[in-house]
Amino acid sequence: MNYKNSFSVKAFFDYLREKRLMGVKCLNCKNLMIPPRLICTACKKANLEWFEFEGAGALETFTILHVAPTSLKDKAPYILGIVKLNEGPLITGRIIGVTSDKPKRIRIGMSVKADFIQESDSTILAFKPNN
């Protein structure tokens, strides 16, 4: 497979299927980005390489989604969060391992780690609390 040369949406999801959280590092200014991009958000150079994120971080914010789009109606309520990864960048994921009926147990700042869940045909990014 040749996808590793392409910093694409497809490559990000192909890596997710392998339980790897991949972004890019700018070879010019060392800026880290996830999901992968083609042009550095800081220095605007197109000189990047793959960078593997460890998947550990802290919950920056969250919501419990009650009114869901059609395809996820049966899954609601489900929890979503934005996680600040230890390497710096933020990313959105599903939050698992906590129940949505106890919002008080979901704390901003709690440490979480990446998990990879299978939903219909694709692998999606999730985070669960570190216990």
């Binding site: 999901p35 969250f62 989604l65 009114v67 789009p69 899954k75 934005i82 994921g93």
Partner: peptide, 24 residues
């Protein structure tokens, strides 16, 4: 679409996350 929508993030979901960050 790939980085928010697929996860089930909706418009109210985004503003809810901003609200929780603001409260904190």
């Amino acid at each position: 679409h790939p980085y928010e929508c697929i996860l089930g993030v909706s418009n109210p979901g985004l503003y809810a996350m901003m609200a929780n960050a603001y409260f904190e």
